[in-house]
Design a protein around this nucleic acid. Structure first.
Length: 803
DNA sequence: GCGGACTGCTTACCT
DNA sequence: ACAGGTAAGCAGTCCGCG
């Protein structure tokens, strides 16, 4: 059997690109594949005979085939069948897998594997830049350069038509083409120019990967750690390859005309950097591995798609058909359906010594397995009643406002009422799942977690750095990601797995578990101060044995779950993850301090979440001062008096210093979408508009995987909304604004958390001025009041005298 | 015309 | 192009005040 490189629908036919035994690329056309969708037998029986006949006559459906509990309904293709699907949905029936394209149906049914032995071309184009600004397809393409994955290089410059023809000819020898920001520039540019020149190409036979997007996805969360300050090819190459682009002073066209050798070197270097980055970071190969594992093509590399293909193939093996993806109409109905998420405990703010952080291990997957939460195990009728009772119980309250005992009592009462014979597991949203069904999703999740254990075991036997080690490491992380994403698709309205009962069965049971473990720690005299979704923060005395405490808590948790929820088994338990030596609990999702235990190691390091020192848009000077302050408090145990002195010195410094440079003061903010899409225009957008007008920047692309454009600017006069680009810094900056907003505000939050009784706001110019205004106003008002009373008193006296 | 209260938008984070 | 929850800061609006 062949392995597929790519495939697509061509009217009623399927086109598949594959490699034959001698590694030659071939195109296969499948002409007579019968597309079908499925319907459960029970639902099928409700369709009136004459309706079926009618659709037969109209040649909408062609054939019926009974198979176990299903009927396969064949159609001429997946679009002529639309009226029939609409008829079924309108009559409350559920066509299964009716959204599949013809080739997807074919690939799943025939268990076609994905080819990972592919040829890759890395390329880059240069265009005429003599006109103002960049506009896709406006100007001539001057040249292109390319490297393939074997290290061969190519370069063509000159007549646009000729070089583009050569490029397409070269591309014929490859399966995948990659560029840098090529989704936003190179690819649409080439396509636009081809159209202009009246040339066409079969793009569907090749996969395109934008390596910049891939890098953003992989590294954006750890930029700070690896020293990455942006996602230009230059910056990324510098960090990972210690190489840079070729420097040049002239514009592109100028260089093309006057310094062709440098131009050629420049163009080729970019392609070479792409080739080297891929080689170093294994970008394409790791993606392909996931594609092979799940049965997905490279151009559809999204979590949702990977999981969907994997699950369609698994269900096929089990002789099952899954629900169709929602059509537009259902999506519209679902638009304002909201799914409750994780629980974030109101933190007990303050300064703490010795705080242990416990985490539920793979909480959502574990609960899905333990409670058997799935589409096929859900008793919808019972759960609808349960949900209704739950709504009534909430009386408009948000779930996080409900106290643990009250929630628990409600659930137990309902369990007795709705499931007296204990046939179901009950989730914390009062929904019910059949205990006796081997449900599809939980079984799959369990397989994934088991698979991960196997990989991890093998990994332990491998030498780091070897190919096998890398391979296992990749597989292990894919399996983990898939298990963890399984919840995500049950809450994704575009997915075939969306179900509010299920999604909230998971999240609310998670909320309940968090409250349960909190109650358990409370009973163990170790009250919890904070928790977010699957974690709890517990201050412990120095002499407490944390592992022992954890064991006790876990035992109690398991007893509780088994006793009251009557599960067959529970794999929900806590792990000891980290511990602070001293920490400041600032706010929800914001805390900082000195870690003493992290990644199974004793450490002494600053560890912050959500605070300004970890945020990209905090100025470097403020970041540094924030870190200094946290260390003074949590590492050096300074007194309030010492800190007050430190603040006063810092304020005096900020008001007078001439040392601070643009790098210290620039505020970096991302422009995340085209400027015209903004409903309000913050400073950074106004500056971006200016840059775009001057042709110094492209409009940003929208989307999760695009980085947008960072604008670095300096506030010159906040009252008059005067801001300039960091490059144009001339030494003027709004010192009071910087102190109040950029520097002191984050510090003040720390200070008033640690020393709530000290008046810290007096160091903030704006707040102090406001307070003063208020005081004066109050004084005035009091004076007026006094005069009024005096006047009345006099009047009264006068009247009394008259009497 | 100004400031305060309020709402909504935007960014960036956490799980 | 898998989810929801949250903080901070600013833009924009409405309104009362003088």
């Amino acid at each position: 059997m062949f392995k597929a490189i790519t495939a697509w629908d061509d009217k009623n036919q399927i086109k598949i690109v594959y490699k034959d035994d001698t590694d030659n690329r071939k195109l296969k056309t499948i002409k007579n594949f019968n597309w079908y969708f499925a319907l459960s037998l029970n639902e099928f029986k409700t369709i009136p005979e004459d309706v079926l006949n009618d659709f037969y006559q109209r040649r909408v459906i062609s054939k019926l085939e009974k198979k176990d509990k299903y009927v396969k309904i064949y159609a001429y293709n997946n679009w002529v069948v639309k009226p029939f699907i609409e008829y079924l949905t309108a009559n409350n029936l559920h066509p299964l897998e009716a959204d599949l394209s013809i080739h997807k149906r074919y690939l799943v049914d025939n268990h076609i594997e994905i080819e990972d032995n592919v040829d890759v071309l890395f390329f880059d184009i240069e265009t005429d830049d003599s006109n103002q600004g960049i506009e896709i397809g406006r100007d001539r393409i001057l040249s292109w350069a390319a490297y393939d994955n074997k290290g061969n290089s190519f370069f063509e410059a000159g007549d646009e038509r000729e070089i583009l023809k050569k490029f397409l000819l070269l591309l014929q020898k490859y399966d995948v083409y990659c560029g840098w920001n090529s989704d936003g520039f190179d690819v649409p540019y080439i396509k636009a120019r081809l159209t202009k020149l009246g040339l066409s190409y079969e793009w569907r036979a090749k996969h395109h990967v934008d390596l910049m997007k891939r890098c953003i996805k992989l590294f954006s969360y750890e930029m700070e750690k690896i020293g990455l300050t942006g996602f230009s090819l230059n910056k990324v190459s510098k960090v990972f390859l210690n190489e840079e682009k070729i420097e040049h002073d002239e514009g592109i066209l100028e260089m093309f005309q006057n310094n062709f050798e440098l131009f050629k070197k420049y163009n080729l270097k970019d392609a070479e950097l792409l080739y080297k980055l891929d080689k170093k970071l294994n970008l394409i190969q790791v993606m392909l591995q996931q594609c092979v594992w799940t049965g997905t093509f490279l151009n559809r590399f999204y979590v949702g798609e990977l999981l969907d293909n994997y699950m369609l193939r698994e269900s096929k093996k089990q002789g099952m058909y899954l629900r169709s993806k929602p059509d537009r109409k259902i999506m519209e109905e679902l638009e304002d359906v909201r799914v409750t998420g994780g629980y974030v405990r109101e933190p007990n703010r303050g300064l703490y010594d010795n705080v242990a952080i416990f985490d539920f291990k793979s909480l959502y997957p574990s609960m899905m397995i333990s409670w058997n939460i799935g589409q096929d195990s859900l008793n919808e009728e019972l759960s609808n009643i349960g949900s209704e009772h739950f709504e009534h119980f909430l009386k408009g309250r948000k779930i996080e406002e409900v106290d643990f005992d009250e929630w628990f009592k409600f659930l137990m009462k309902e369990k007795k009422l709705l499931d007296p014979n204990d046939e179901y597991t009950q989730t914390a949203n009062n929904n019910f799942f059949d205990k006796h069904i081997d449900s599809f999703i939980p079984t799959l999740v369990k397989n994934l977690l088991d698979q991960r254990k196997v990989f991890k075991k093998e990994l332990a036997k491998c030498q780091p750095g070897t190919a096998k080690y890398g391979d296992l490491k990749g597989k292990q992380s894919v399996v983990k990601e898939m298990a963890n994403s399984m919840f995500g698709i049950t809450a994704d309205k575009r997915s075939r797995y969306f179900n509010r009962h299920i999604a909230e069965g998971i999240t609310m049971t998670g909320q309940f578990m968090n409250k349960t473990i909190s109650a358990i720690f409370e009973k163990l005299d170790s009250p919890v101060i904070y928790g977010d979704t699957d974690s709890v923060f517990v201050p412990v005395d120095n002499d407490v044995n944390i592992e022992k405490l954890l064991k006790t808590a876990n035992d109690k948790l398991t007893d509780f779950i088994l006793k009251w929820f009557k599960l067959k088994m529970s794999i929900v338990y806590l792990e000891y993850d980290k511990a602070y030596r001293k920490m400041i609990m600032l706010d929800k999702k914001r805390y900082t301090g000195m870690m003493k235990f992290l990644n199974d190691q004793d450490v002494n390091e600053l560890y912050s979440k959500g605070t300004e020192d970890v945020k990209r848009n905090t100025i470097t000077f403020a970041k540094q001062k924030f870190i200094d302050l946290v260390k003074l408090i949590t590492d050096e145990n300074k007194t309030a008096d010492e800190i007050i002195q430190w603040v006063e010195d810092l304020r005096a410094y900020v008001l007078t210093t001439e040392d601070l440079q643009a790098e210290d003061l620039q505020i970096k903010t991302t422009v995340s979408k085209p400027t015209y899409k903004y409903k309000s225009k913050p400073v950074h957008v106004r500056l971006a508009e200016k840059l775009i007008k001057e042709g110094k920047m492209l409009e940003a692309q929208e989307g999760k995987n695009s980085w947008g454009n960072q604008i670095s600017y300096i506030i010159v006069d906040n009252d008059n909304k005067d801001a300039i680009l960091a490059d144009e810094f001339n030494g003027n900056w709004d010192r009071k604004y910087y102190w109040d907003v950029q520097i002191f505000a984050p510090l003040e939050r720390i200070l008033s958390t640690v020393w709530p009784d000290i008046d810290w706001e007096k160091y903030d110019f704006e707040k102090a001025a406001k307070k003063e205004r208020k005081r004066k106003l109050e004084e005035k008002r009091a004076e007026k009041e006094r005069l009024k009373i005096e006047k009345e008193e006099k009047k009264r006296q006068k009247q009394q005298n008259l009497l």
